[in-house]
Every structure is written in structure tokens, then in C-alpha cells.
Nucleic acid binder design. Structure first.
Lengths: 237, 237
DNA sequence: GGCAAGTTGTAACATTAGGTTAGAATACCA
DNA sequence: TGGTATTCTAACCTAATGTTACAACTTGCC
């Protein structure tokens, strides 16, 4: 069991190698990208616990990657790597939502400290197969089904599971259709025009037995997308 | 400066006196209600940091008060007081969302421990005049105005301040119009039919310079109400 | 292969919640 | 008392979402 999955976007092979080794040694699972285009692709197609992003890259520039990722995944943790002197880049990066930065040349020790710090303050999401509950029941990701308090069940399809997982992992945050298409469907279309998501939501609401007129679990956020309702109250301890 | 404001709904004058004294001694601000009707009124008209609710009351029964309050304020912390033996009431109370219970007769020490515990695990809201920020600026409750990053400002009216405060204090949670009417307007109408809230929201969006078609700060949750957007990312430390 | 069941996507239409405008009521103040 | 700011109401309108019905695709099985 690795501690977290980290995407490293860095073109210098020596530096990349160093980073990967260090992360690997510290029990992280590491994915690599050697240039901007590959980085953009990997970072937008998948969600990682952390992105290590060199700003000076061949291909798509680091800052653009950052902005794209940020648009799609507002909460994706990102640490940027900048060369000494390129202070303006660093400032732009932080403005664009990077969580922290490391200035090259850096020591492995320093990098690891930053990594740990950012991961530490990332709100801990339920891990992949942890139970997600809603007022009238809970989601069993293992068995791909919903179990209700009256112990009845409904089965979930593949896409439904992924959709529910993504939404539930981000409860309390309104997720745009773009973000869903990118994260759940692994597509990357700017400004979509498909009702597919709405369809799936409708089907999910049905299975969740959510209130049809006034949903209480899977909320519609006008002009934005959908949201898994924040837990109203936690009863007892 | 008191630590928190607590509403005590308890008909027995001796017990009530004891509770009030103890809370007072511990720096809490205490409001009292001596029967169910008064309790229902006070608990629905105002929001408190904590509700101490005796279940056996003349007038409106405790459980009904609990349910009404819960409908209006899903996060209102509540501790119920039950007589020894009335176990079914206690269970019902917890089912209906009470956060904890104390069985009579209880020691002051025990009560205080419960109070502290519940308050401790209540998600700490920004206190009344703490700054609330949004991506393009922040709310200054003192001066009743919005300050933007470009250091321009807009003034807020009384109602606007209260509305913004309530929504922002509950960011990430969709607030129903009923809850707003009850908490901000201090009205108690079941199933409203006024567009007043929508109006105020529109004006607020204007002042917040929120995106008109796709709001990013003050979101509309279909069939439910409105929501102050959850913080997308916290930049840096 | 090819049929059946299940899943996912699309097109087209329907509905209505919420945005919006304009003005009436009310409160505030000098 | 008149003027100004604020709040509320009524009425209208639109576009975002819900919804239906079916087409396309996948999967497994004989």
C-alpha cells in the first residue's frame, strides 16, 4: 500500500530521476511526464494526490498546465518547481493556485518536507473503497451497490459507481459538468454540449430514491453542475 | 466576551436555575425558556451555539421542538435532557439528530463536560465579525462593505450583511429559503411563496460582481435555495 | 458469428424554477 | 414633511434542467 500517488512533470532526466527515487523510497507511487504536452495530458486525464510541476518545460508551458488543471480540478494539490531567479513565474504560479513551491536547485530533503506538508494539509478524502453514506443508506463500492437502511439494495453500473465516487469524494463542492467529463469520463472537451451527465444524474437519483422535485442527496447547482450534499449533521460521536 | 450563547429549554425552575448558574459561571451567555412554546419560539427565531433541551415539557413537546429546529437548521447543536427511564425518548431524540444527551438527575460537572464536548466538535464557524473572503475580495462586516482585490468597494445594506453572514458562515451547504427566512428574517412560514430572497440574492450578486450567468460565489441550488461556494483552493499557507 | 441483456449516449421536447423589471410599501432621517 | 434608501411584491420571461424514447454500443454466451 503506497501512501499517495504523485505525478511528476519535469523534463531534466537527472532531476526527474532524483525526484522519482526519493518519492519511491518514501513509499509514494510515482507517475512521470517528461515534457509539457505529456504532462498536460496526464494531469488532466487523471487525478493525483499531488502534482509536482516544473514551470520551465518543453511543449506546453508549466503555467498553462497549472491553469488547465486548476479549471478542471479546483482542489488538485500542486507544488511548482522554479529555477532560482524566475521569481515572477513563481508568483504567477501561486496566484494561479499552486499550493507551494520549491526553488531549484533544491535538496531532496527540502522537497520531501514540502511534499509531506502539502499532503498533510490536504483535506483527507475518503479513500477509494471507504463507505460513503447518505441519510437513507450508504454506498458499497466493493459490491457496487446501494444499501438502504431498510436493508434493500440497488445495483450500480460502472459509470454510476465512478460518478458517485467522484461526487461523494467532493461532497459540499459544486462540480461542473466539465470537471465531471474530465474526471469521470476522461474526456477533455471545453464547453460541452451533451446531456449525458444529466442523464446519469437522473438515473442515479432514481436509484438513490432521492426526492424527485427537491433532491436532498444529489443537488443541482444552477449554471454549474451537480453536488453531493454536505452531511447535514453527524449524530452522536 | 462570552464563549458561546446557549439556549436552555427547561420547565423545572430549580433545574433551570442550576443550569443557568453553571453555564454563566463558565462564561457562557445563556438564554432561557420555561416551557415548550416559548422554547419553540426562541429556538426557531434565533440561532444558538448550543441548545439544551428538556424533552418532557409543558406546551410543545421537546421532540417536536427538536424536529422543527432540525428542519430549519440542520447543523444546530443540541443536547437533550431526559429523565432516567425514558429511554425511548432518548433514542428518538438521537435519531432526530440530537448531538448528545444527559440523563436526569445529572451533576453539573457532567453537564458541563457534555456541553464542552459538543461545542468542541462543532465545526468552528468564523465568529461574527471575522473576515469572510471570496476569490475576488472579502467582506468587511465591521464597515458593512465589500472590498475587492483592486481595492474598490461596495457598501452593503443591513439585510445584505445579515444574509451574506449567514450564507458565508454556512459555506458549502445549500441553504433553503425557509432556513433563510427563519434565520435572517426571523419569520416562520412553512413553505414560503415570496421572491424576496431571490431579489436580495440578485442584488448581492451584483455587488459581489459575481458572474451573472454562471455564478461562482453565490450559487443557486435548484429546488433548494442558495449556497455560498466552498473555498475552491487555499493558496499557500 | 450472432443473439440477448445490460449499459451508455443522443436527440428532441417539456417544464418550471429562478432571474428580472418596475414599481409599491416601508423605514429612516434631517 | 419631503426626500432618500431600503425592502418587498407582482408579473413576466427565459434558458437550464428534467425527461422520454430510442439508438448505439458492450458483453457474455450458445
Amino acid at each position: 500500500m503506497t501512501r499517495a500517488t504523485i505525478l511528476t512533470i519535469e523534463d531534466d532526466p537527472a532531476i526527474r530521476r532524483g525526484i522519482v527515487d526519493a518519492l519511491d523510497f518514501n513509499q509514494y507511487s510515482v507517475i512521470q511526464a517528461a515534457d509539457g504536452d505529456e504532462g498536460l495530458k496526464k494531469s488532466t486525464q487523471n487525478e493525483y494526490d499531488l502534482l509536482l510541476l516544473d514551470l520551465a518545460l518543453p511543449g506546453t508551458p508549466g503555467l498553462e498546465i497549472l491553469r488547465e488543471v486548476r479549471k478542471l480540478r479546483p482542489t488538485q494539490p500542486v507544488i511548482i518547481l522554479t529555477a532560482k531567479g524566475e521569481e515572477s513565474d513563481r508568483v504567477r504560479g501561486l496566484e494561479d493556485g499552486a499550493d507551494d513551491y520549491v526553488v531549484k536547485p533544491f535538496s531532496i530533503k527540502e522537497l520531501m518536507a514540502r511534499v509531506e506538508a502539502v499532503l498533510r494539509r490536504t483535506p483527507q478524502r475518503p479513500s477509494n473503497n471507504e463507505a460513503v453514506s447518505f441519510p437513507t443508506g450508504q454506498v458499497d463500492f466493493e459490491r457496487r451497490e446501494l444499501r438502504f437502511v431498510d436493508s434493500s439494495r440497488s445495483e450500480l453500473s460502472e459509470k454510476e459507481v465512478e460518478l458517485i465516487r467522484y461526487l461523494a469524494n467532493n461532497r459540499g463542492r459544486a462540480i461542473s459538468r466539465d470537471e465531471l467529463l474530465s474526471s469521470v469520463w476522461r474526456l477533455n472537451p471545453k464547453g460541452i454540449s451533451t446531456r449525458t451527465i444529466d442523464m446519469h444524474i437522473a438515473r442515479l437519483r432514481e436509484k438513490l430514491r432521492d426526492n424527485k422535485e427537491k433532491p436532498e442527496i444529489l443537488l443541482t447547482v444552477r449554471g454549474k453542475g451537480y453536488m453531493w450534499a454536505a452531511q447535514p449533521t453527524q449524530v452522536g460521536d
